[in-house]
Structure formats: structure tokens, C-alpha cells
């Protein structure tokens, strides 16, 4: 009997496609519970997550050897708070530069379903103006998109979920486009560059390519860097492995982009290129506006 019911549910939900009525009901019914539970355990959660950074405290630890355990715990909590503040500041900074209108949110729960899914629940919903299929960012770049929205909570699909796909563009060029795909928690994100005449190199940076009507993705949100390029001889596309700017396993403070008053300047949101990369691609720092007519000549740095 129960097995039959399970199969019926599977069929019904499968037929109704993604974001069926059950999901909305689920969001409405369970969302408040998760909000409440998160309010209680969030300090505990931040304590545990700060444990992950223990190694960086080691040097501090030596000085604090005389201090007792209670003091040490308090120190970790304060550190978590400080990290919180920094994350929020970074998010507002990015949204401000882009002139995105965002609804800021906390991640209150993570999905797993036996480890197959990479989704998260945030504490804003339709009452805050969030809708289905909107871009979610944090201070570092693209986090994901909303896939189901309840009154006070909504579910987001994170960038490393295998179901996640976003149009992307290589920074510094106009025509080098393709798509970024999540591949699960244990495999890296990939970028498929379309066109035989397009090339990419490790170190190249990726930003989102606007979707039609900016849903689900608004343009120019930083995604990550190409860390290596896979050989695909004789194909109409090439594939690169992406090192995302956002750590999907520990997103905490995010913003849902609800409006884009003006399209931001090309490549203006990217973080500055890390360490002089071997590629001489013009790295556009946020303060310098790249113009199409003038081709910046790379200044040779380092020893010849």
C-alpha cells in the first residue's frame, strides 16, 4: 500500500515538473520550522564551522595556552561574528558596484538527500519580493538561483549541483561565450566554451552572461577562474575546469537580485587577477574601465 502511494507520488510530482504545488506547500509548512530551528542552533553551527578553520588559529593558540577552554570558545565565536560582518559588507559592496537591487538573506538549512543534491534554504520569500528563477549572489560572486519560493523562505540551487547550468562569458572579450555546469560536490564545475575559434587559458575569468529578461541570471556576476583546460581535439567546443570564487559548501550571507536598474560595466565586478598569471590577457581592475577601441598593451613584469 505505502509503496504504491510512494510510486503514485513520484508519478504525480514527476508529471507536474519542477516546482510543483507540493514544493510550495512544503516551503510554506516546513519553512517556518527551519527558520525557528536555525535561530536556535545558528550560534552552535557557527561554532562548528569555525572548528574547520582550526589550523589558522594554531599560532594564536600557542599564545593562549594559559587561557582556559571557555575563553577559547568565546574567541572562536567572536571570529565567526567578525567573518559574518565581513561577508555582509562584501555582499553590499558587490551589489553596490553593480547597482543590483538585492534582498539580503541568511542560509538557514542545507539540502542533501543522501548527498545527491546541493541546495540551500534561505530566510526570505515572496513576502520580501523574491520570485522563482532569480540570481543569488554573495560577496564573492555567483551562488545560484532560486528554484522554489514560499511566503517567508525559499530554496536555492547552488552552483555545484549537477542540475545547475548558467550562461557564461570569458572576461575581457565580448564573443567568447559558453555555459558553466555544476557537477556535484565531488567533481569540479566545468565551463564549455562554444565555437572553434574561441580559446581559453588557465587563469581566464568567467562572468555570467545575461539570460533573457535577466531571469534566471543577471549579467556580469563573477563566477570563477579557469584552472585547467581539457583537451577536446576536433570538437566544436572546448571544456575548462572552473575554480569558483564562491565556496558552495559554506555560503552563509547571500543576496537575491530582484532588480537590475542598469547593466553594469563589462568586467567591472571581477576581483583583481591573482598573482601575475603567465597569460598576458589584459586584467581589468575595477577602477579601470575597459574600452573596446583601445587595446591595452600588457606591460612586461618580472624578470625576462
Amino acid at each position: 500500500m505505502l509503496l504504491l502511494t510512494a510510486f503514485t507520488l513520484i508519478t504525480l510530482d514527476y508529471r507536474s515538473g519542477g516546482g510543483g504545488p507540493f514544493r510550495t506547500i512544503g516551503n510554506a509548512v516546513f519553512g517556518p520550522f527551519e527558520r525557528a530551528a536555525n535561530a536556535v542552533v545558528h550560534p552552535i553551527g557557527s561554532f562548528f564551522s569555525s572548528l574547520g578553520h582550526l589550523s589558522s588559529y594554531k599560532s594564536d593558540n600557542k599564545k593562549l595556552k594559559a587561557e582556559n577552554q571557555q575563553l577559547l570558545e568565546r574567541l572562536r565565536l567572536t571570529d565567526a561574528d567578525r567573518a559574518h560582518l565581513a561577508a555582509a559588507e562584501k555582499l553590499l559592496n558587490l551589489a553596490g558596484r553593480a547597482q543590483f537591487r538585492i534582498v539580503a538573506a541568511h542560509v538557514i538549512a542545507y539540502g542533501s538527500s543522501l548527498g545527491f543534491e546541493s541546495t540551500a534554504e534561505i530566510d526570505v520569500g515572496s513576502r520580501d519580493g523574491v520570485q522563482r528563477n532569480q540570481t543569488v549572489i554573495d560577496g564573492d560572486g555567483l551562488v545560484g538561483k532560486t528554484i522554489s519560493v514560499g511566503p517567508t523562505t525559499s530554496t536555492i540551487l547552488l552552483g555545484n549541483d549537477p542540475d545547475f547550468t548558467a550562461g557564461a562569458r570569458l572576461a575581457g572579450s565580448s564573443q567568447q561565450i559558453g555555459h558553466v555546469d555544476g557537477a556535484g560536490r565531488n567533481d569540479p564545475m566545468t565551463f564549455t566554451l562554444l565555437g572553434t575559434r574561441s580559446t581559453m587559458r588557465p587563469g581566464d575569468r568567467l562572468v555570467t552572461f545575461a539570460s533573457i529578461g535577466d531571469r534566471p541570471f543577471v549579467p556580469e556576476v563573477p563566477i570563477g577562474r579557469i584552472s585547467s583546460v581539457q583537451p577536446t581535439a576536433g570538437q566544436l567546443f572546448s571544456i575548462g575546469v572552473v575554480a569558483p570564487y564562491v565556496d558552495y559548501s559554506s555560503v552563509d550571507i547571500v543576496g537575491v537580485v530582484v532588480d537590475v536598474p542598469r547593466v553594469p560595466k563589462r568586467d567591472s565586478l571581477l576581483p583583481p587577477s591573482p598573482t601575475p598569471s603567465p597569460s598576458s590577457s589584459p586584467s581589468t581592475s575595477p577602477s579601470v574601465s575597459p574600452s573596446e577601441s583601445q587595446s591595452p598593451t600588457p606591460t612586461p613584469t618580472g624578470t625576462p
Binding site: 505505502l2 509503496l3 502511494t5 510512494a6 510510486f7 503514485t8 507520488l9 513520484i10 504525480l12 510530482d13 514527476y14 519542477g18 510543483g20 507540493f22 514544493r23 506547500i25 512544503g26 516551503n27 509548512v29 516546513f30 519553512g31 527551519e34 538549512a109 542545507y110 539540502g111 538527500s113 543522501l114 545527491f116 543534491e117 541546495t119 540551500a120 534554504e121 528554484i147 522554489s148 514560499g150 523562505t153 530554496t155 540551487l157 549541483d161 542540475d163
Partner: peptide
């Protein structure tokens, strides 16, 4: 079944309803 169904519906989940219900049953 009941636990699985609740886990199917609990928000961040994003799969066809009933799969965890079946697995947990």
C-alpha cells in the same frame, strides 16, 4: 514511509516527491 515523505517535502530538497519515502520504507 512517513519520515521519508517528510524528508521529501522538507524545503531544500529538490527531487521527485516520494523517492525518500520509498527508500526509507
Amino acid at each position: 514511509f512517513c519520515t521519508g515523505l517528510a524528508a521529501d517535502v522538507l524545503p531544500p530538497a529538490d527531487h521527485t516527491l516520494g523517492r525518500l519515502a520509498l527508500a526509507f520504507a
